[in-house]
Amino acid sequence: MKFLNVASARSARLLAAGLALNLLTACSTVHNQTVGAAATFVPVTPRAGYATVYIGRPFTFHTSVFALPIEVDGKRLTSLPPGQYATVELPPGRHSVGSPNEYWTRVISGVPHPAEFVVEAGKSYYLLPKRWGEDAGYSYTMVGSVVVPQRTAVAHSTFSVQAAAANDAPPPEFRQLNSAKAQ
């Protein structure tokens, strides 16, 4: 009888740990916050002498539910939630778009690296998040008497840049995004 109680207690601990993990996972994955509102991405023709830059943040399995601060040329543009995009017009020349290298930004998306690119007047530029990991390894946690391995790595992030003529179709990821409100 004692063996059953020990096994039942161990099973209960594993079940509780599994439920806690499921609850944490459920809290960290929230689908597009504009449910019910159809995304209506419509690219605009840039003003004469400028380019239009669209910065998108599609919701994927590794997207944080927290808004990500976005800077253009080191100046704050907006705080971009998942499922939305921001637009900025830039003059021709070299520009950078990224997130500030701060603690909270590293928590949200990894170590940020600004995307640097040259803008040409009359074109549209589409920026989408890009992530990668370095120094991959494992950490181990004991749950009762069970060893649970977890893959670890240092996360890094930037934006991929796609240039297009002003009247070209946007990347498909933008069709699911809604315009972010100006901040």
Rank of each mutant, 00 (worst) to 15 (best):
A165V: 00
R151M: 15
F159E: 08
A163T: 06
S79Q: 04
K123H: 10
E89D: 03
P69V: 11
K130G: 13
V65H: 09
T152N: 12
I70Y: 03
K75E: 06
I70T: 03
V88C: 08
G93K: 00
S160G: 15
E120D: 06
Y85I: 08
A164L: 11
P149Q: 11
S157F: 13
D73I: 07
V65N: 13
L127V: 11
S99W: 08
G93Q: 03
E134P: 15
A86L: 12
E89H: 13
T63R: 08
W104V: 14
P129N: 04
V146Q: 12
R106L: 13
Y126S: 01
L68Y: 02
A165H: 12
G133L: 07
V143E: 05
H156T: 07
S79R: 12
N101C: 15
S109Q: 07
R106K: 06
F66C: 01
S139F: 10
G137H: 08
T105M: 12
Y138W: 14
S139R: 11
P69H: 14
P149I: 10
E89N: 14
V88R: 08
G93R: 01
S139T: 12
V118P: 01
V118R: 01
W132Y: 05
L68M: 05
A163W: 01
V154A: 12
W104H: 15
G122V: 00
T78F: 05
I108C: 12
V161G: 05
E120C: 01
Y126E: 00
H95Y: 08
T158I: 10
A153R: 14
E116Y: 06
Y138I: 10
G98E: 02
Q150N: 13
R151D: 14
A163N: 05
T158P: 10
I70L: 09
G133R: 14
T63Q: 10
A86Y: 07
K75S: 13
A155H: 06
V118Q: 03
A163F: 07
Q162F: 13
Y126K: 04
Y103E: 05
A121T: 01
K130S: 13
H156E: 09
V65E: 05
F159K: 01
R131G: 08
G133H: 09
T105C: 06
A86M: 09
L127T: 00
L128W: 01
P129I: 11
L127Q: 10
P149S: 09
P114E: 07
A155F: 12
A164N: 03
A166N: 03
E134D: 15
P149T: 09
L77H: 09
L127G: 00
V161N: 01
P149E: 15
E102Y: 06
P112K: 14
L128H: 02
A136L: 11
G133V: 15
E89C: 01
P112D: 11
S96H: 02
K123R: 09
Y103T: 10
R106Y: 09
M142G: 10
K123L: 13
L77V: 05
P81L: 04
A163P: 03
A115D: 00
T78N: 15
L128P: 04
T87P: 13
V111D: 06
P149M: 15
R76W: 07
V107W: 14
T63D: 02
L68V: 02
P129A: 14
D135S: 12
